[in-house]
């Protein structure tokens, strides 16, 4: 699992457990003959809840919005790798790629939408981006380790989709 995926797993897992504890509490509260709560007061507190939700969302927004993949620049010394997708193959020019220097992928498609997803030899998803016919999609990534990386198509592209694999070789 990648680092971002791990963050998602831990935070989603934690919040879900808290949510379930709250739900069990609500469910159990209907058992027995508990006195009627002050519904007016609970109703008033919904405004506080509203404020809490807004604050939580704002925190999540400001802590994540700078980490989008948009507008990344590879700099002057980037290695350019032009890859073309067709149903159902990745046409990789095989330019020797090196670790440590940013690679600017320039991705195009000859036919339909494809998804360029790169996995390391251990099967971990490193990054993904869409490839649209008639457009050039760029993605900048710096490989840290040498080796063979597998490309899968992660956007459904037709009957051969699951077999649309390619590979990239990166040396030190």
């Amino acid at each position: 699992m990648g680092r971002i995926a791990l963050i998602i797993a831990v935070s989603y897992g934690t919040v879900s457990v808290l949510a379930i504890v709250f739900l069990v509490w609500v469910g159990v509260s209907t058992r027995g003959n508990q006195p009627e709560p002050d519904l007016r007061k609970i109703g008033e507190r919904e405004k506080t809840w509203f404020a809490v939700v807004v604050v939580l969302l704002a925190v999540l927004l400001f802590s994540t919005i700078l980490f989008t993949p948009y507008g990344r620049s590879a700099g002057k010394h980037a290695q350019i790798e032009k890859i073309k997708a067709i149903q159902f193959a990745w046409i990789v020019p095989g330019t020797p790629l090196k670790t440590g220097t940013p690679v600017e992928f320039q991705l195009t498609s000859a036919d339909v939408n494809h998804g360029f997803a790169v996995y390391n030899a251990g099967g971990k998803l490193l990054f993904e981006v869409q490839v649209m016919p008639g457009k050039t999609q760029k993605y900048v990534y710096t490989f840290k380790k040498p080796g063979t990386y597998t490309i899968l198509c992660i956007e459904f592209c037709g009957v051969g989709h699951a077999h649309m694999q390619g590979s990239l070789t990166v040396s030190a």
Partner: peptide, 26 residues
Amino acid sequence: LVAWLLAGLSGVVNATIAFDQVVHNT
């Protein structure tokens, strides 16, 4: 209602670009 809460929370992950970039189309 339980599912709504759990699905809403997994939806917030999808709505966050920094997270979506690793779960999109998975």
